[in-house]
């Protein structure tokens, strides 16, 4: 466990936390504004521009959509992210960050990531990732031992100022979506695909993330599918 370091202390460089706070706010605002009518016409207009068959895209642009959620990787590939509900894009951005965060760390650490149990992976999230991202450890981790984990943080960094937010900027739970995606990215990268949902309970500075492992249900459905009718 200790050799699988995902250290919390900034290793090479550090930036002021304000930078990250603002980036996250803009990420949410950017994605949410897609939902506003004014922007929708823009998107529609843009949809014409973004005719992905005619525009030569950079190589990394389209072919491998492995970063997308499995359920969104449906046949209508051409519509891409444009069709995604706005907040799902925030979740996806979080996933992208979480996945790479683990990858960056494992490049430095020993490649002994394979033997990690489900609980170890969760501990990495609660201890190391949390410290890196939110500057503290989680306050509690509970599990029913059947693939469901509940992470509770009583003073969640990114919700510190949420109670001062005017209603127009959105509901506090919008700001749980990015971290939920991040957790999902980390766990998936560690070999445990899951679904993560974040809610502000009981009140904004505290947050509850519910992690549901997909492996159990996925193997069940896999066996069900493999049975011939």
């Amino acid at each position: 466990m200790d050799s699988q370091v995902v250290p919390g202390v900034p290793t090479r460089g550090a930036v002021d936390s304000t930078v990250l706070d603002f980036l996250l706010m803009e990420l949410v605002a950017e994605s949410v504004s897609e939902a506003f009518p004014m922007r929708t016409t823009l998107t529609a207009k843009r949809g014409v521009d973004v005719d992905r068959t005619s525009v030569p895209l950079p190589q990394w642009h389209a072919p491998n959509r492995a970063w997308m959620k499995p359920e969104s990787a449906e046949p209508n590939q051409s519509s891409g992210t444009a069709e995604m509900p706005p907040l799902q894009r925030v979740e996806e951005a979080g996933f992208y960050v979480g996945e790479r965060l683990v990858r960056k760390e494992s490049e430095r650490a020993s490649p002994e990531q394979t033997g990690m149990t489900e609980l170890d992976a969760l501990k990495v999230v609660c201890r190391d990732i949390w410290r890196t991202v939110f500057g503290k450890q989680v306050d509690s981790l509970k599990t029913n031992h059947r693939g469901v984990y509940v992470i509770f943080d009583a003073s969640f960094r990114w919700l510190r100022y949420v109670h001062e937010m005017p209603d127009s900027i959105g509901t506090p739970s919008w700001y749980c979506i990015f971290p939920a995606g991040l957790i999902r990215g980390v766990l998936t990268e560690l070999g445990y695909p899951c679904a993560v949902q974040g809610v502000c309970e009981p009140a904004p500075p505290s947050v509850v993330f519910t992690v549901r492992m997909l492996s159990a249900s996925a193997s069940e459905s896999a066996t069900m599918l493999s049975d011939p009718p």
């Binding site: 900034p10 290793t11 002021d16 980036l23 990420l27 521009d49 973004v50 642009h61 991202v133 500057g135």
Partner: peptide, 24 residues
Amino acid sequence: ELVNSELAALTYGALVRQLVLDYA
């Protein structure tokens, strides 16, 4: 209050990536 610069770099990367996907 300081945070890991990698995290900021990745978050910014996610933002740029989205824009690159959105705009032609």
